[in-house]
Design a protein around this nucleic acid. Structure first.
Lengths: 223, 223, 223, 223
DNA sequence: AATGAATGAGTTTTCATTCAT
DNA sequence: AATGAATGAAAACTCATTCAT
């Protein structure tokens, strides 16, 4: 894990190109995507208000005015950005694969969960936490249409395993979504403290989650 | 639980008093506290950058210029605010009281943990998540001097109970700090989604935590 | 000569035009020059600190914000201004023309020297005296690249005349640059006292300089 | 000669005394003088507008509010300061002493003239040049009551010497006040360019003045 | 579609000055 | 006489947004 929010952002693309290609005309979708890419970096590092249109434009390699050709205003850029980001879900949590032995499958899943804590996914989390009030409808829609179905599907898998006697019934098997809590916890530690502290706290949270999940294993307990 | 971050802030004190009491002179501590109170509301609702000195001053019932009599600049206000907020820790997590029967004690503790999720404590959390990069030293100091000692003391209590046979050894008794994860999870749900969603997610996290803790109970398992 | 520094500045251009022509778009060079013109008046009359960006913008007939489109900050405006002003030198002092008889030539030169004391050139002098510490490099460069060459060329002319026996060797022919002293003296008198006093002192300094220069005349002495 | 205007001012008196003597009550004249001393340093280094009441107060070792007990406002401080400074004239220029031989006397006088160019006297000059418009009456009074009498007395001495055949009649003996021009010239060079340049220009101006004055010597000419 | 120039509204901060003690 | 607290006015500067080409 890298340090938390570091406002020493990667330099603008424009910085690399002193000879600026005058007036490149792009199809709207391409331009829009360039702008959103730039916006993610800036918003993610600085938050909505502290991020500036100038910087986004510079990073996107175009002019401020051109942002307004593609988006109505700053809010719309933000909203479009999150609309894109929230669609695919950083949908990491897939249930264990049947082929593997069960414990290995759990271990892999735990690794996958915590492995999803990339700088980018954390930037998105921070944006959601700090600025979701700007996009309440979007956030709720994301919850209803992405989070809930994922959780439901996941829970169905677990329930099926439990019914089949392949997993024992524990509080975690009853509400498997609980597994997100330690992941979020690790993310927050990273955002707030960074460095050593985050590493240590994340590790403990992860291992405890692993052991709790192992308690769902049928035969004899684990690690 | 009330709705999440609502930038329809309570109106300024001054708004109520069109006839402003000219030149109230206060001792510095009082005035500073008034300013910090106002600052918490504004920073908490809007974040550092979006909060404005003008609004803080208005809310504190004094002039912009007077803020600069008591604080060097906006950053110092923010830092002073967090310095105060982070000292006492909303140190909620106290171990179970010996008198009670153990299960009731655990239940009380869980209620206390989630009961600590007041609008104010959540405003602080959001500030920490969104703006801790402004006060890295403070945040780390808080972790070292407040979080760590609290966790250590807590874990010692648990360990003692386990050694005395009053609690069973489980992954949670091994790392009791894990209990913070679902609390944080509930807080984030509140911040990001608010309303129904938060309520429901919080409830599930809380009850799962409760059941997990009950697994530490000695005799026969719980709920 | 007019009165010295009169902070009753000529009114802003905008003052005359209550119906402001919306959004005049100019090429940068033109706009920059307008701003610098306004800046000269304001800086010249009030000095760097007392001059204000608002007033300069108003006088230039544009918005404050637009000044920042063309210049990075107040200092840069000041520096750009002086860079322009110091380049061409108020390069007045040219040696006597061969055609004329020598005495007439000297007299013309003296008149030219003191005639260069326009309000504008004096505003520049005052700026240099009061604010040159803001632009040490510029000032020194101006000295090296403009003052020195001019003086050198001038001295060479004089030396040639002396060598040719057309002028006598006197302390003034040895260091002809000395002639600037009474001019500066007149300027300072004007800046500090203005009116009658300046007029009288200038006159005396000028006539004395003239007589001293006449002492370089070969045949019989002068006035 | 030291560098020109150096806004690295000597530190405030208060800086030396962390334990501040609470509420020292002084007789008005003493306090006034302390304030004026501080004001000279600040105004002299920064000019009227850039100098600040806070700094003057701090340097004087008292409170801002107390300045307003002794002076009506910033302008009055400035005016009082110059009233004091302009009274005694750093009126150095005294005619040659009879005892000495004439040439030595002239040389001593020239040295004295240029020796009067102390940092302090130059600060005053700069103030006069940059800010005399704030105190037109004072400046004129100073001219009438101090400069003029001094010059008149001086000229009378010269005239007497010329009448007595001890000095020859030259343009400089006709208007001896001209001698101030090269001194002012040296001062301005120092203010504008400082360092090497000022030194060199001052030297040339001084030596030329010396030689011009030597031309008043009766017998055979000098150096 | 693209953009350089332009701007109104707002930002943080400073300053000379005043009030209450 | 002295001062800490208070403040209105203004300063420099920024920003999201718009206009004209």
């Amino acid at each position: 894990m890298t340090p938390r929010q570091a406002p020493d952002l990667p330099p603008t693309a424009a910085a690399d190109l002193p000879a600026k290609p005058k007036r490149v005309r792009l199809v709207p979708e391409v331009r829009r995507q360039q702008i959103l890419d730039a916006a993610l970096i800036e918003f993610g590092a600085l938050g909505f208000t502290a991020a500036s249109i100038s910087k986004i434009a510079a990073r996107a390699g175009t002019s401020k005015a051109n942002l307004y050709v593609h988006f109505a205003n700053k809010d719309e850029i933000f909203e479009s950005l999150l609309k894109v980001l929230l669609v695919p879900t950083n949908s990491i949590w897939r249930p264990m694969q049947p082929g593997q032995d069960m414990q290995a499958s759990i271990d892999a899943y735990v690794d996958e969960l915590f492995g999803g804590l990339t700088p980018q996914s954390m930037a998105i989390m921070r944006l959601l936490i700090a600025e979701s009030h700007r996009i309440p409808a979007l956030a709720n829609r994301w919850y209803e249409q992405t989070i809930v179905p994922t959780k439901v599907e996941q829970q169905q898998h677990i329930d099926a395993y439990v019914a089949a006697g392949q997993l024992r019934k524990t509080p975690l098997s009853d509400y498997f979504g609980f597994a997100m809590a330690p992941v979020l916890y690790a993310a927050i530690m990273q955002m707030v403290f960074g460095g050593q502290i985050a590493e240590s706290e994340s590790h403990k949270a992860k291992e405890t989650l692993r052991k709790l999940l192992h308690m769902m294993l049928p035969a004899v307990a684990a690690s």
